[in-house]
Simulated scan of single mutants.
Amino acid sequence: MSTSPLPGDASNDPTEDQTGRFVRQPNGRVRPLSPHLQIWRWHVTMLGSILHRITGGALSGGAVLVVLWLLALAFGPGAYATFTGWMGSPLGLLIWFGLTLCLAYHLAAGVRHLIWDAGEGLTPKSANALATGSIVFGVVVSVAFWAGLFMTGRVSL
């Protein structure tokens, strides 16, 4: 399907466009140029969407860490001590905190999507509120969880 101007409208003729809004494809067809981030205004729902995808990928990496933990458990006390030594280090605790943050946010974003799938919260104001709420929920739950771990002495630096 080729792009064609409206009948009698010479201003929309893509072959005469000098603004750079159209590009000629290798097959010779003239197509409108897709908008880029310079044109779009930033929204919190965009951030929520990007974070949801990133946290999903990070949780896949976290699943690999859980498998490594189970393998260390299966290979005996020496392997398990090595694994817990690495994961109990400050860098390991930072990784676990990050995974907790990813899990809490991904859960909240999943609930947000369930609400949207039900046809609710789709106005810009409510969508922004749900996106902001899911980000805040993820941070608050993660910090509270790890604060509880440190305060009860289950984790220490």
Rank of each mutant, 00 (worst) to 15 (best):
M1H: 06
M1T: 10
S2P: 05
S4I: 15
L6A: 14
L6Y: 10
N12D: 13
T15E: 09
E16P: 01
R21K: 15
Q25I: 08
V30G: 00
V30P: 00
S34M: 09
H36I: 09
Q38G: 14
I39T: 15
R41D: 11
H52P: 02
R53M: 06
A58F: 15
A63L: 14
V64M: 09
W69E: 07
L70M: 12
L73Q: 10
L73V: 03
L73E: 08
A74Q: 08
G78D: 11
Y80F: 13
A81S: 13
A81V: 08
T84M: 06
G88C: 10
S89V: 07
S89I: 03
L94C: 08
G98E: 04
G98S: 13
T100R: 05
A104C: 12
A104P: 02
L107E: 03
H113W: 10
L114N: 00
A118M: 09
A118Y: 02
E120Q: 11
G121C: 06
L122Y: 02
T123I: 13
P124N: 14
P124V: 14
T132L: 01
T132Q: 02
V140I: 14
V141M: 12
V141C: 12
S142H: 06
A144K: 08
F145P: 01
W146Y: 08
L149P: 04
L149C: 15
L149T: 05
T152D: 13
V155M: 14
S156I: 04
L157A: 05
